[in-house]
Amino acid sequence: SPQLSSEIENLMSQGYSYQDIQKALVIAQNNIEMAKNILREFVSIS
């Protein structure tokens, strides 16, 4: 969805990798808010 694409772009601009974002979305069943929480908790931005 376009909204999801812009959310993904936004997260990538914050330093998350596309791969990590995709993984979080799978775990969160495409719930972007939950995916963000997963990324915040489990992915360290280098």
Score class of each variant (00 low, 15 high):
residue 1 S to Q: 09
residue 1 S to M: 01
residue 1 S to Y: 04
residue 1 S to V: 11
residue 1 S to D: 08
residue 1 S to N: 12
residue 1 S to E: 15
residue 1 S to F: 08
residue 2 P to G: 14
residue 2 P to V: 07
residue 2 P to W: 06
residue 2 P to M: 05
residue 2 P to C: 10
residue 2 P to Y: 07
residue 2 P to A: 08
residue 2 P to I: 07
residue 2 P to S: 11
residue 2 P to D: 06
residue 2 P to L: 11
residue 2 P to Q: 10
residue 2 P to F: 07
residue 3 Q to S: 14
residue 3 Q to E: 06
residue 3 Q to F: 10
residue 3 Q to H: 07
residue 3 Q to K: 09
residue 3 Q to R: 14
residue 3 Q to N: 14
residue 3 Q to C: 12
residue 4 L to N: 07
residue 4 L to D: 08
residue 4 L to S: 09
residue 4 L to K: 06
residue 4 L to Q: 05
residue 4 L to A: 03
residue 4 L to Y: 12
residue 4 L to C: 03
residue 4 L to G: 08
residue 5 S to H: 04
residue 5 S to V: 09
residue 5 S to R: 12
residue 5 S to L: 13
residue 5 S to E: 05
residue 5 S to M: 13
residue 5 S to W: 03
residue 5 S to C: 08
residue 5 S to A: 09
residue 6 S to W: 04
residue 6 S to V: 10
residue 6 S to E: 13
residue 6 S to C: 13
residue 6 S to L: 14
residue 6 S to A: 07
residue 6 S to H: 09
residue 6 S to I: 11
residue 6 S to F: 08
residue 6 S to P: 07
residue 7 E to A: 11
residue 7 E to V: 12
residue 7 E to K: 08
residue 7 E to D: 12
residue 7 E to R: 02
residue 7 E to Q: 07
residue 7 E to L: 08
residue 7 E to T: 10
residue 7 E to I: 04
residue 8 I to T: 03
residue 8 I to V: 10
residue 8 I to E: 05
residue 8 I to H: 01
residue 8 I to Q: 02
residue 8 I to S: 02
residue 8 I to L: 05
residue 8 I to W: 03
residue 8 I to A: 08
residue 8 I to D: 00
residue 8 I to K: 05
residue 8 I to N: 06
residue 8 I to P: 00
residue 9 E to S: 13
residue 9 E to T: 11
residue 9 E to V: 07
residue 9 E to N: 09
residue 9 E to I: 10
residue 9 E to Q: 12
residue 9 E to F: 11
residue 9 E to H: 11
residue 10 N to H: 08
residue 10 N to S: 12
residue 10 N to R: 11
residue 10 N to V: 11
residue 10 N to D: 13
residue 10 N to P: 03
residue 10 N to E: 13
residue 10 N to W: 07
residue 11 L to Y: 00
residue 11 L to I: 09
residue 11 L to C: 04
residue 11 L to P: 04
residue 11 L to A: 00
residue 11 L to M: 08
residue 11 L to E: 00
residue 11 L to V: 00
residue 12 M to D: 03
residue 12 M to R: 13
residue 12 M to S: 06
residue 12 M to N: 09
residue 12 M to H: 06
residue 12 M to Y: 03
residue 12 M to G: 02
residue 12 M to C: 13
residue 12 M to P: 02
residue 13 S to M: 06
residue 13 S to Q: 11
residue 13 S to D: 09
residue 13 S to N: 13
residue 13 S to V: 13
residue 13 S to T: 08
residue 13 S to L: 11
residue 14 Q to W: 03
residue 14 Q to P: 01
residue 14 Q to V: 08
residue 14 Q to C: 05
residue 14 Q to K: 10
residue 14 Q to L: 11
residue 14 Q to H: 05
residue 14 Q to I: 13
residue 15 G to F: 00
residue 15 G to L: 01
residue 15 G to W: 00
residue 15 G to M: 02
residue 15 G to A: 02
residue 15 G to C: 00
residue 15 G to E: 02
residue 15 G to D: 01
residue 16 Y to L: 02
residue 16 Y to C: 02
residue 16 Y to P: 03
residue 16 Y to Q: 00
residue 16 Y to G: 00
residue 16 Y to M: 00
residue 16 Y to H: 12
residue 16 Y to V: 04
residue 16 Y to S: 05
residue 17 S to W: 02
residue 17 S to F: 04
residue 17 S to R: 04
residue 17 S to M: 05
residue 17 S to Q: 14
residue 17 S to A: 08
residue 17 S to L: 08
residue 17 S to T: 07
residue 17 S to D: 10
residue 17 S to G: 08
residue 17 S to E: 15
residue 18 Y to H: 04
residue 18 Y to C: 01
residue 18 Y to P: 09
residue 18 Y to T: 05
residue 18 Y to L: 11
residue 18 Y to A: 08
residue 18 Y to N: 14
residue 18 Y to E: 13
residue 18 Y to S: 06
residue 18 Y to K: 11
residue 18 Y to V: 07
residue 18 Y to W: 10
residue 19 Q to F: 01
residue 19 Q to T: 09
residue 19 Q to S: 12
residue 19 Q to V: 10
residue 19 Q to P: 08
residue 19 Q to L: 06
residue 19 Q to G: 12
residue 19 Q to I: 08
residue 19 Q to D: 12
residue 19 Q to W: 10
residue 20 D to F: 05
residue 20 D to N: 08
residue 20 D to S: 11
residue 20 D to K: 05
residue 20 D to G: 04
residue 20 D to W: 02
residue 20 D to C: 09
residue 20 D to L: 09
residue 20 D to Q: 13
residue 20 D to R: 10
residue 20 D to M: 04
residue 20 D to V: 08
residue 21 I to V: 07
residue 21 I to M: 00
residue 21 I to L: 01
residue 21 I to G: 01
residue 21 I to N: 00
residue 21 I to D: 04
residue 22 Q to E: 03
residue 22 Q to P: 04
residue 22 Q to F: 05
residue 22 Q to R: 00
residue 22 Q to V: 04
residue 22 Q to D: 12
residue 23 K to C: 05
residue 23 K to M: 14
residue 23 K to S: 12
residue 23 K to I: 06
residue 23 K to F: 06
residue 23 K to L: 11
residue 23 K to Y: 06
residue 23 K to Q: 11
residue 24 A to F: 00
residue 24 A to N: 04
residue 24 A to E: 04
residue 24 A to Q: 03
residue 24 A to I: 01
residue 24 A to G: 06
residue 24 A to S: 09
residue 24 A to P: 01
residue 24 A to L: 00
residue 25 L to W: 00
residue 25 L to K: 01
residue 25 L to E: 01
residue 25 L to A: 03
residue 25 L to H: 05
residue 25 L to C: 03
residue 25 L to Y: 06
residue 25 L to G: 02
residue 25 L to D: 04
residue 25 L to T: 01
residue 26 V to H: 06
residue 26 V to S: 10
residue 26 V to N: 10
residue 26 V to M: 08
residue 26 V to C: 13
residue 26 V to A: 11
residue 26 V to D: 14
residue 26 V to Y: 09
residue 26 V to G: 11
residue 27 I to Y: 09
residue 27 I to K: 15
residue 27 I to D: 15
residue 27 I to M: 15
residue 27 I to V: 09
residue 27 I to H: 15
residue 27 I to G: 14
residue 27 I to F: 13
residue 27 I to S: 14
residue 27 I to E: 15
residue 27 I to N: 15
residue 27 I to Q: 15
residue 28 A to V: 00
residue 28 A to Y: 00
residue 28 A to W: 01
residue 28 A to T: 11
residue 28 A to K: 07
residue 28 A to C: 05
residue 28 A to I: 01
residue 28 A to S: 14
residue 28 A to Q: 01
residue 28 A to F: 00
residue 28 A to P: 02
residue 29 Q to G: 13
residue 29 Q to K: 12
residue 29 Q to T: 06
residue 29 Q to L: 01
residue 29 Q to E: 13
residue 29 Q to A: 06
residue 29 Q to N: 09
residue 29 Q to Y: 04
residue 29 Q to S: 09
residue 30 N to K: 04
residue 30 N to R: 02
residue 30 N to I: 00
residue 30 N to P: 06
residue 30 N to D: 11
residue 30 N to Y: 00
residue 30 N to A: 03
residue 30 N to C: 00
residue 30 N to T: 01
residue 31 N to F: 00
residue 31 N to G: 02
residue 31 N to V: 00
residue 31 N to T: 01
residue 31 N to K: 14
residue 31 N to L: 00
residue 31 N to M: 05
residue 31 N to R: 10
residue 31 N to Q: 09
residue 31 N to D: 09
residue 32 I to F: 06
residue 32 I to G: 09
residue 32 I to Q: 12
residue 32 I to L: 13
residue 32 I to V: 06
residue 32 I to K: 05
residue 32 I to D: 06
residue 32 I to H: 10
residue 32 I to W: 03
residue 32 I to M: 10
residue 32 I to A: 09
residue 32 I to Y: 03
residue 32 I to P: 10
residue 33 E to H: 07
residue 33 E to Y: 05
residue 33 E to G: 13
residue 33 E to D: 10
residue 33 E to R: 09
residue 33 E to N: 08
residue 33 E to A: 11
residue 33 E to C: 10
residue 33 E to M: 07
residue 33 E to L: 06
residue 34 M to V: 12
residue 34 M to T: 15
residue 35 A to N: 00
residue 35 A to C: 07
residue 35 A to P: 03
residue 35 A to E: 05
residue 35 A to G: 06
residue 35 A to S: 09
residue 35 A to D: 07
residue 35 A to W: 00
residue 35 A to Y: 00
residue 35 A to T: 10
residue 36 K to Q: 05
residue 36 K to P: 06
residue 36 K to T: 07
residue 36 K to H: 03
residue 36 K to E: 08
residue 36 K to N: 03
residue 37 N to H: 13
residue 37 N to Y: 08
residue 37 N to A: 04
residue 37 N to R: 09
residue 37 N to K: 13
residue 37 N to C: 07
residue 37 N to M: 01
residue 37 N to E: 08
residue 37 N to L: 05
residue 37 N to I: 08
residue 37 N to Q: 08
residue 37 N to D: 11
residue 38 I to V: 12
residue 38 I to N: 14
residue 38 I to C: 13
residue 38 I to D: 08
residue 38 I to M: 10
residue 38 I to P: 06
residue 38 I to Y: 15
residue 38 I to Q: 15
residue 38 I to G: 07
residue 38 I to R: 14
residue 38 I to H: 15
residue 38 I to A: 09
residue 39 L to T: 04
residue 39 L to I: 04
residue 39 L to A: 01
residue 39 L to D: 06
residue 39 L to N: 09
residue 39 L to K: 04
residue 39 L to P: 02
residue 39 L to R: 03
residue 39 L to Q: 03
residue 39 L to C: 05
residue 39 L to S: 04
residue 40 R to F: 06
residue 40 R to K: 11
residue 40 R to L: 07
residue 40 R to Q: 12
residue 40 R to N: 11
residue 40 R to E: 12
residue 40 R to S: 13
residue 41 E to L: 00
residue 41 E to F: 01
residue 41 E to K: 14
residue 41 E to S: 08
residue 41 E to V: 02
residue 41 E to Y: 02
residue 41 E to I: 04
residue 41 E to R: 11
residue 41 E to G: 10
residue 41 E to A: 05
residue 42 F to S: 13
residue 42 F to T: 15
residue 42 F to Y: 06
residue 42 F to G: 08
residue 42 F to C: 05
residue 42 F to E: 15
residue 43 V to P: 15
residue 43 V to Q: 15
residue 43 V to E: 15
residue 43 V to F: 15
residue 43 V to A: 13
residue 43 V to L: 11
residue 43 V to H: 15
residue 43 V to N: 15
residue 43 V to C: 08
residue 43 V to S: 14
residue 43 V to Y: 14
residue 44 S to G: 13
residue 44 S to W: 01
residue 44 S to F: 08
residue 44 S to L: 11
residue 44 S to D: 15
residue 44 S to V: 09
residue 44 S to A: 12
residue 44 S to Y: 07
residue 45 I to K: 13
residue 45 I to G: 15
residue 45 I to R: 14
residue 45 I to T: 14
residue 45 I to A: 15
residue 45 I to W: 04
residue 45 I to V: 13
residue 45 I to M: 13
residue 45 I to F: 08
residue 46 S to G: 10
residue 46 S to N: 09
residue 46 S to C: 04
residue 46 S to K: 15
residue 46 S to P: 07
residue 46 S to L: 07
residue 46 S to D: 14
residue 46 S to Y: 00
residue 46 S to F: 01
residue 46 S to M: 01
